[in-house]
Simulated scan of single mutants.
Amino acid sequence: MRLADFRVTRFQFRRDRVIGDSQVRTDQVHVAALELFAESGEVGLGFVFSLFHPLPDEAEIARIFREEAWPRLEGKDPSALVHRVRRPRGGNWRGYTLLFAEGIDQALWDLSAKRLGMPLWRLLGGEPRRIKAYASGLDYHLSDADFVALFEHAASVGYRSFKVKVGHPDLDWDIHRLDLLKKTVGKAEAVMIDANEAWSPQEAVRRLNAIHRAGFDILWIEDPCLRTDFAGLNVIRAGCPFTLVNSGEYLDASGKRALMEARGTDMINVHGHVTDVMRVGWLAAEYGIPVSLGNSFLEIGANMAFALPEVDWLEYSFQNFDHLVEQPMEIRDGVILPHDRPGHGLALSATARAMAVPTVTATDALPPAPANPRLPPLSGSRLAAAAG
């Protein structure tokens, strides 16, 4: 199997809600599908993102890819590329102008598994088992009514564990949102909170103890302070023995290794880069540190979750992406299920190709947000109205 060609398909569309945290917010999706074609006809799919700003025109994305990435791929065997180890020296290995690396990695692993006719999670050594999906609202900028409506729906379709954004300047606001969640979903199996680096270590200890005294049992606090403040993370761990620290989201593989070496976290948070996740997961197993799968595009990270030891949790955020693929990952009653399709399980849909936006388009010229079959439009709820 040799790589013979590629195709880029650009998308730009509205989100069905504003998402964000204590630091950022966004209401659009900027993503490109990267398809790598093998001589034998198989197609590997990956995704290229820009979280806040539109990607360049499709033709320009393809030009940059052809100049910067394609010379390293053309004519190569995908299965050899996914296992290659490169040592950077000087300028022999540079970052891409656009965030191609994760999409290339996903497409190469997709092809490698298709070559053997097996699901990627099985190629990675995985076994079918129970991995819980927790409902994550990306909810910081939602009104109370929409916050309640989102988690009310999540509970109604079987989710039993939930993650809420915190880190508001007013501690009472954070406690109020946790109280709303409790009133909405009842007794949860687990509640997680995510501050997105909003606090200093001392402030994190103060606030987490206040949340604990208010009667909230928090399974983990995610990214409570600056990502590289390993000493500070250990201050939080020592000062808040009633909860776990989950960190590493904002660190690359080298940074995650340093974090684990410093014993600065109780859990390591990984996402959608297959090779890096597996390498970090292997090291985490050596340290005995559990791994959690944070948001990955269309839950592609489920493949790694099934393949790594001690992964109990996968994040699901009800984002309106499902129309982009023929068959999204299945989550039933708050549990993500292994797929039986060759590769990572995702293939670009005809609907997506018809919705491609080849050129940068102004926000007011974009069509309405694509329907999200997993989350009806947010319009508040009886409980939220009563809460005022």
Rank of each mutant, 00 (worst) to 15 (best):
Glu74Asn: 07
Gly103His: 03
Arg63Gly: 01
Arg66Glu: 12
Lys114Thr: 02
Thr97Asn: 10
His83Asn: 14
Pro119Tyr: 02
Glu60Lys: 13
Ile64Gly: 06
Pro56Gly: 12
Asp77Ser: 04
Trp70Ile: 00
Ala69Glu: 14
Glu68Arg: 05
Val85Trp: 10
Gly95Cys: 15
Gly90His: 11
Val82His: 05
Ala80Ile: 12
Pro88Met: 10
Trp109Pro: 00
Ala107Glu: 05
Ala62Leu: 14
Tyr96Trp: 12
Val85Lys: 15
Val82Ala: 02
Gly103Leu: 04
Pro56His: 11
Arg66His: 06
Lys76Gly: 08
Arg89Asp: 05
Glu68Phe: 07
Gly91Leu: 11
Arg89Met: 09
Pro56Lys: 01
Pro88Asp: 08
Glu74Trp: 02
Lys76Asp: 02
Lys76Val: 08
Ile64Lys: 05
Pro78Val: 07
Gly90Leu: 15
Arg84Pro: 06
Gly75Leu: 06
Leu111Pro: 05
Trp121Ala: 02
Phe100Ile: 08
Leu116Lys: 13
Ala107Asp: 03
Pro56Cys: 14
Asp77Phe: 01
Glu58Val: 07
Arg72Asp: 12
Trp93Cys: 09
Gln106Val: 09
Ser112Pro: 12
Leu98Pro: 03
Glu102Met: 12
Leu99Gly: 01
Ala69Phe: 04
Val85Asp: 11
Asp77Gln: 06
Ser112Cys: 15
Asp105Ser: 08
His83Glu: 15
Gln106Asn: 10
Arg87Pro: 05
Arg89Phe: 09
Glu102Asp: 09
Arg86Gly: 09
Leu98Asn: 03
Gly117Asp: 11
Arg115Glu: 12
Met118Tyr: 04
Pro78Phe: 03
Gly103Ala: 10
Pro88Ile: 14
Pro119Lys: 01
Gly90Ile: 04
Pro71Cys: 08
Gly95Pro: 11
Ala113His: 04
Arg87Lys: 13
Ile104Pro: 04
Glu68Asp: 09
Leu111Lys: 06
Gly90Tyr: 13
Leu81Gln: 10
Trp93Asn: 13
Tyr96Arg: 08
Ser79Pro: 06
Leu73Gly: 00
Arg86Ile: 08
Asp57Cys: 07
Ala69Gln: 14
Pro56Glu: 10
Arg89Asn: 13
Glu67Leu: 08
